[in-house]
Amino acid sequence: MSASVEEADLRTLACDARETVLRAVANARGGHLGGPLSAVDLLIALYFGVLRIRPEEPTWPERDRFVLSKGHSSVALYAVMALRGYFPLEEVMTFDAINSRLQGHPDMTALPGLDMSTGSLGLGFSAGVGIALGAQLKGSGFTTFVMLGDGECNEGTVWEGAHVAHRYRLDNLVAVVDQNGLQQFGWLDPSTGRRVPPYVGAELADRWRAFGWRVLEADGHDLRTLPAVLQDAREGSGAPTVVVARTVKGKGVSFMEGDYSWHSRVPTSDELARALGEIDVTRRTPERVP
């Protein structure tokens, strides 16, 4: 069942997850950072506030399903799953090591609790459509959540699946788009020097709307509001729902935020120390109420 955790605790958990992500990538000397850091708050909100799961029984048949379609953010998922009790937090330090259960991209044959193997972008989403359709056919009550990147939405399969989910009125399916406004390399915008996806701002949400989906927009780092938005998303309404969450790539570490080059860079020991220092400050600073 969903763990009921106070907001303040969610913030602490998110800091713990970010710290774990940074340490694991530095330790492995591989993996991704920008995308995992932008996804942390969404994952915390899902695993601690929304998903009906039993970490001690990862294959519980009635569990909500979660597919990390942006599979390169695996290390964030591992950190959050560990914090939620699926396995010891220390195990995250085996990320990317040979023979580890914590593969560079999520491998459902290696780690219990992963509902799909992902890493080839765009495919996890379609698998999620299949899971949701299967649940509808069987009359199962669980909800399927799929997390995508905004770059990932370049892939044709995403829109192929979006048509089908709409056609079958899969209101047991929730897509969560981590819209951090960057992909790996993207299109160079000569006027700003930024490298961006082919849709900016509201254009992406509009595309989902045009495909017949119910669209909810959210601040993907606001842990005061995210659980409620995601909870609302799972309330069936005759159409599949997408939560388009505005996020910042590299969130939590000032010198990584919004810089595409941190997509899959490994921090030096100095950079790691500075990054962990910033996370620590966040952990100790009470959130400002606007």
Partner: peptide, 29 residues
């Protein structure tokens, strides 16, 4: 390029000849 020019070495072409470097995004087929 399929959005991986920073990994494949392709990015060098964008620097040298931007008009001949066609970013097609994450969509291989």
């Amino acid at each position: 390029d399929g959005d991986v020019g920073s990994s494949t070495g392709g990015a060098a072409v964008e620097t040298a000849h931007p008009e001949r470097y066609l970013q097609t995004g994450i969509g291989e087929q």
